[in-house]
Structure formats: structure tokens, C-alpha cells
């Protein structure tokens, strides 16, 4: 047998595969290349794509989806899922609108507005905190799969929102709020800065804190992590609380964008957050994922969307293409090792 020879080829093929893997979708350089390719492609194909206006709208549209994706990615890394992020965000917005409308007198002064806005934000944060703690406790202590728990909480939260609002959109915000939300710093919208800040925060928490390292370990093997003297239940409660608090930030951005609230805003983003995470190299089975990859994946999706939009394609078609991209990325990830073994067999 040519055992020696074949093992030598194996090693070289393996290292080749590792390098290929880093360059394929899911790897950081591959994603960057894809992003560049798309930007160049659209700039050539769509007149007017390469403009300050496009960049501006890009930075205005990305924050909400980006924050929701951050809310999704933390549970994903632990091998879970939070299907309730959009319901939570919407309910939080509704609550904040309700507080502002109730407390704001007819002709308020600037100080009153600031106070009311602060109270509303506190109420929203408290709501998200409670939702996160309850979801986390249900996941951690009942042992029911997070998909089911959050399917339940999603339905419950949506139900409460719809029940209380009769499905109507709510508006009537202080103008100052919208103005602050849509302000820009050196031409960069505040929302985009918030997204960058939150991305950095989540990224550092995941990579550099005991909590974050515990999250990735739980994603690969909960029981072994528990046996390593880590309170996995407390970590899981923390994970869903963190996810829910990201929803609070998303709610602030959503309020600034829409200037109103409804139970069914942004519902179509749910899949997109999963899509962005998986595209950005987050393992849907848990254990692996970086915020940087997620951010680039988000940029890719947003560029596809803006490009198609300027190209005059329907948003429905964009949604379909996003779904297809998710399936395609997962297919490539599954098939790749097989391709490797096929090549090796030859």
C-alpha cells in the first residue's frame, strides 16, 4: 500500500483545505472580497449607485437590522435562537410611545420633554430586561428548546401588543425625539454610530469576558461546560437578557426611524437576522461566530438590497434572494468537506 505517499498528500490537501476554508464564504477575507465585488458590480451596473446618497441611506437603513442581528447572534452562539426579538422590539417601542403620549402635556417645555423621554426609555429598558430574564429563565430551567420557548414568547408578546393596540400603529411623538434620532455626527447618522458601538460592545463581551467564552463553550457542549464548574443556567439567562437589551437599543432606533410604533413593524427581518449571522460565519449549531463577520455579512445584504432597490426590483424579490443566499451558503458549507473527500479519494 502507498500509505506513506497518501498520508503526505493528505496533509498537503488538508492545509490547502484550511486555506480554502478561510477564503470561502464564512471566512473573513472571503466575505470582504464578496462585499467589494458587490459594491463594484453595482457601481458599474447601476448608474448613480456609487454616490454619497447611497452611502447615507446605507448608514440609515443598516442600524435597525444590525441591532436585531446582534440580538440574534448571542443566543445563536450558544446553540439557541431568539425568535422573539422583533416582537420584543415592537412592544418596547409601543410602550415608549405610550409613556410619552400619556405623560407629555399639550405644550411642553424642553426640560419636560427630556424628562418624559428618559422615563419612557427607562420603562422600555425595564420591559426588555423582564422579557429577557423570563425567556432566559425558561430556556435555562425548563430545558425546553429555545426555539420553542421563544416561539411561545414571540406569540405571547405579539399577542399582547396586538390586543392592546387593536393592531393599529401608534404615533404622536415629541418632535425633539425624532430630530435627535435622525441627527448626524460628521455626516454619520447617530443610529449608525449606535450600531458600531453596540457591535464593538458585543464583540468584546463575546471574545474577552468569562461570560462570552462560556457562551461559545455552551454552544459546543452545554454539559461539558457545566461540568467545568460554569453556572450554565446563569450564563443562559444572561444570554437572553443581553439579547433582549439589544432589542431595547433596536427599539430606540426603530422609534427614530418610523416615528411611530406598531406590532407588525419589521417582522420580515426575523429571517434576515439569522441569514446575516449564518452568512457572517456564525455556526447555526452554536459554538462559533464573530461579530466582525456578522457586520460584513450585514453590509453585503444591505448592498444587495440597495442595489436591487435602485435597480427597480421589488423588495419581495430581495427577500426571496436573501432566503436563497442563506440556503446556498449552508449548502456550500455542507458540501465543502465532501468535495474535499472526493478529491482525496481520487
Amino acid at each position: 500500500m502507498s500509505d506513506v505517499g497518501s498520508s503526505a498528500t493528505n496533509t498537503s490537501l488538508n492545509s490547502l483545505m484550511t486555506r480554502l476554508r478561510a477564503g470561502a464564504p464564512g471566512g473573513f477575507p472571503g466575505l470582504l472580497a464578496l462585499l467589494l465585488l458587490l459594491v463594484t458590480g453595482f457601481s458599474v451596473a447601476v448608474p448613480g449607485f456609487a454616490s454619497v446618497g447611497t452611502l447615507q441611506s446605507f448608514m440609515q437603513q443598516l442600524p435597525l437590522l444590525g441591532l436585531l442581528s446582534l440580538a440574534m447572534v448571542v443566543p445563536l452562539i450558544t446553540g439557541g435562537l431568539n425568535l422573539a426579538i422583533i416582537a420584543t422590539t415592537n412592544q418596547c417601542v409601543l410602550l415608549m410611545v405610550f409613556v410619552m403620549r400619556t405623560l407629555l402635556p399639550a405644550d411642553p417645555g424642553g426640560g419636560t420633554v427630556l424628562g418624559v423621554v428618559l422615563v419612557a426609555m427607562l420603562a422600555g429598558a425595564a420591559l426588555c430586561l423582564v422579557v429577557g430574564l423570563v425567556t432566559g429563565a425558561l430556556v435555562a430551567y425548563t430545558g425546553v428548546h429555545p426555539i420553542l420557548v421563544t416561539l411561545g414568547t414571540k406569540s405571547l408578546i405579539d399577542g399582547i401588543s396586538i390586543f392592546l393596540t387593536r393592531g393599529q400603529a401608534q404615533s404622536g411623538l415629541p418632535a425633539e425625539f425624532a430630530r435627535a434620532g435622525n441627527a448626524a455626527l460628521f455626516g454619520v447618522p447617530v443610529g449608525f454610530l449606535v450600531l458600531i458601538a453596540c457591535g464593538l460592545l458585543v464583540g468584546i463581551v463575546l471574545r474577552r469576558t468569562p461570560f462570552g467564552i462560556s457562551c461559545t463553550m455552551i454552544g459546543s457542549n452545554v454539559e461539558a461546560t457545566r461540568y467545568s464548574a460554569i453556572d450554565t443556567r446563569r450564563v443562559l439567562v444572561g444570554v437572553y437578557t443581553m439579547s433582549s437589551l439589544m432589542c431595547f437599543v433596536a427599539a430606540l432606533v426603530s422609534l427614530a426611524i418610523f416615528n411611530s410604533a406598531s406590532a407588525d413593524y419589521a417582522q420580515s427581518y426575523l429571517l434576515v437576522t439569522i441569514l446575516a449571522a449564518v452568512l457572517g460565519g456564525v455556526d447555526p449549531f452554536g459554538g462559533f461566530g464573530k461579530v466582525s463577520g456578522l457586520m460584513i455579512a450585514l453590509a453585503i445584504l444591505q448592498v444587495i438590497s440597495s442595489g436591487f432597490n435602485q435597480f427597480g426590483l421589488s423588495p419581495y424579490l430581495t427577500a426571496a434572494i436573501w432566503g436563497l443566499v442563506l440556503i446556498a451558503v449552508m449548502t456550500v458549507q455542507t458540501i465543502r468537506p465532501h468535495l474535499g473527500s472526493l478529491r482525496r479519494a481520487r
Binding site: 468569562p210 467564552i213 462560556s214 461559545t216 463553550m217 459546543s220 457542549n221 454539559e223 461539558a224 461546560t225 461540568y227 467545568s228 464548574a229 460554569i230 459554538g287 462559533f288
Partner: peptide, 21 residues
């Protein structure tokens, strides 16, 4: 394999796991 090591994660992270705090 089930409760000792976490196979997919790195050697470094496995070793420091009980000492994170």
C-alpha cells in the same frame, strides 16, 4: 468526550475554562 473536553473548541479555551474568573 461528553463531559470532559469540548471537542470542537480550542485547546487553550478548554484548559482555561475552570479558571475564567
Amino acid at each position: 468526550l461528553g463531559l470532559g473536553v469540548i471537542l470542537k473548541q480550542s485547546i487553550a479555551d478548554n484548559i482555561i475554562l475552570a479558571e475564567l474568573q
